[in-house]
């Protein structure tokens, strides 16, 4: 069993036509599927923000899934930035 890569905490900003009510529940479900913690959702016109924590490759997988998302959204880009842990 490989060593667990150090978990990361990142802020994802999902941009585009993303304001369908289906999208936040979709992101919650999909991050749960990937074993990621998803929190601190923010919704503004044209952007959804979420903080996720977990293995880096699985955060990549969440980004990949969100690039498509449910049928009624169009994601034009996803910005990512590390979030420092509060000590």
């Amino acid at each position: 069993m490989p060593d667990l890569m150090p978990p990361r905490r990142e802020r994802l900003e999902i941009l585009g036509e993303v304001n369908s009510p289906s999208f936040v529940p979709w992101i919650k479900r999909h991050s749960g599927r990937l074993g990621l913690e998803a929190s601190a959702f923010s919704v503004a016109p044209g952007r959804i923000g979420v903080t996720v924590a977990g293995q880096p490759d699985l955060i990549d997988a969440l980004e990949v899934g969100c690039l498509l998302g449910p049928i009624d959204v169009w994601v034009s880009a996803i910005d990512r930035a590390p979030v420092a842990d509060l000590i």
Binding site: R29, R33, D57, D60, A61, V64, L67, L68, G69, I71
Partner: peptide, 16 residues
Amino acid sequence: LDPGMETPTRADLTSI
């Protein structure tokens, strides 16, 4: 076109 029942990863980027 909605991957909600799948688990695409970075390796699947071309497909996505």
